[in-house]
């Protein structure tokens, strides 16, 4: 009898896990503006973005890729740099300090972190976190003047729950993240 209950419990758990597994992944954007009290919440299913982005043929975005001009400026191959950075140990790679702005680029636990602090004018703190798989997907096109947005979205679908961008200004905060919830509250 106990064995029967154990088997039934196992079947129940396996069924529940199978039922819950194919969850939709969402890209969320949350903007809060303290100055005018405006709040914006956007929840985009990643599967929707994956279908729509390749269908857009407007301006710099075509065939799922966005043209960004001189991406390979002065012969610097960003894809090769990313490949080199991927195998590099965790640490800080670039720090630019100039009047009004500090920029720090670092690698930590398999993600690329870009931290920008604006101290001039409207003070702002920007932190961008990009998983390596997404950074590689972005630069996976043969043309070095393009970013492969379509591939990056596919890579994001396989990434875990994480915050991608936070912007904290004097009057406004922005957060962009991915998870499996359909609501950005």
């Amino acid at each position: 009898m106990k064995r029967l209950f154990a088997v039934l419990a196992l079947i129940f758990v396996a069924t529940a896990a199978a039922w819950a597994a194919p969850g939709e992944r969402y890209l969320h954007v949350r903007v809060d503006n303290a100055r005018d009290g405006q709040k914006v919440r956007v929840n985009i299913p990643l599967s929707l973005a994956a279908q729509v982005i390749p269908a857009i043929d407007n301006g710099r975005l075509r065939d799922g890729k966005v043209r960004i001009g001189n991406f390979q400026a002065n012969g610097v191959n960003v894809a090769q740099i990313l490949a080199a950075l991927k195998n590099a140990p965790d640490g800080e790679f670039v720090t630019v300090q100039q009047p009004g702005q500090n920029v720090r680029v670092a690698k930590k636990n398999g993600v690329l972190i870009v931290h920008v602090v604006n101290t001039k004018g409207e003070k702002e703190n920007v932190e961008v976190t990009v998983p390596w798989s997404v950074a590689e997907a972005l630069t996976s096109t043969a043309n070095s003047h393009e970013l492969n947005v379509e591939a990056a979205i596919q890579a994001l679908e396989n990434a875990g729950d994480m915050t991608l961008v936070t912007v904290t200004g004097e009057h406004q905060t922005v957060r962009i993240w991915i998870d499996s919830n359909n609501d950005a509250r």
Partner: peptide, 8 residues
Amino acid sequence: GPLVEVTD
């Protein structure tokens, strides 16, 4: 689910 919500 909700896709876009703007509140002011």
